[in-house]
Amino acid sequence: MNIFRLAGDMTHLASVLVLLLKIHTIKSCAGVSLKTQELYVIVFATRYLDIFTSFVSIYNSLMKLIFLGSSFSIVWYMRYHKAVHRTYDREQDTFRHWFLMLPCILLALLIHEKFTFFEVMWTFSLYLEAVAILPQLVLLQRTRNIDNLTGQYIFLLGGYRGFYILNWIYRYFTEPHYVHWITWISGLVQTLLYADFFYYYFLSWKNNKKLQLPA
């Protein structure tokens, strides 16, 4: 464990807590894409298949349970909790996210480190996580005005993979033969997808204006 990875995990934890806080306290999921949340459930479900078979550390297992539990409960709230479901703008959240999964599963079947069920599922979850934010960014473009909590959620979610990139660089230089191109490239693509969001988020913060993405 290094400071970059810890910062990344804490930033990721903060993003799901911000979203749960928003949904649980103000009973609203306005501006939040259910499609992205459903993709994250699949990302964690396929990423943590080995949660019961391979033990790395208490921290590792605890965080896996937190990410699995929070992503499932967010989807449950947005789908089945009456008050929250009412605030979900279904007309705008129309990204065909199942079509995102197909190329990811095909790519995982083609490019992986080892051709085993666990490894292919794990690789699939990496590719899917890289693009899981797309429905949320598309929804953001459509809904124009973004409330602070949703903006913070996306900012933290984008930031965590940025910290992971620093973690990979650190581990590359400190651990011999620590090389994982698949992880690095999908993590880089994932962070780059947030680039324009980060730019407008920074502008809105600098000019102290409401965050608005150009149509």
Binding site: D9, D50, S54, M63, K64, F67, E113, Y164, Y178, T183
Partner: peptide, 10 residues
């Protein structure tokens, strides 16, 4: 082994 170190991340 390379197996474990890549899976020690979340």
């Amino acid at each position: 082994s390379p197996e474990t170190d890549s899976k020690d991340e979340l």
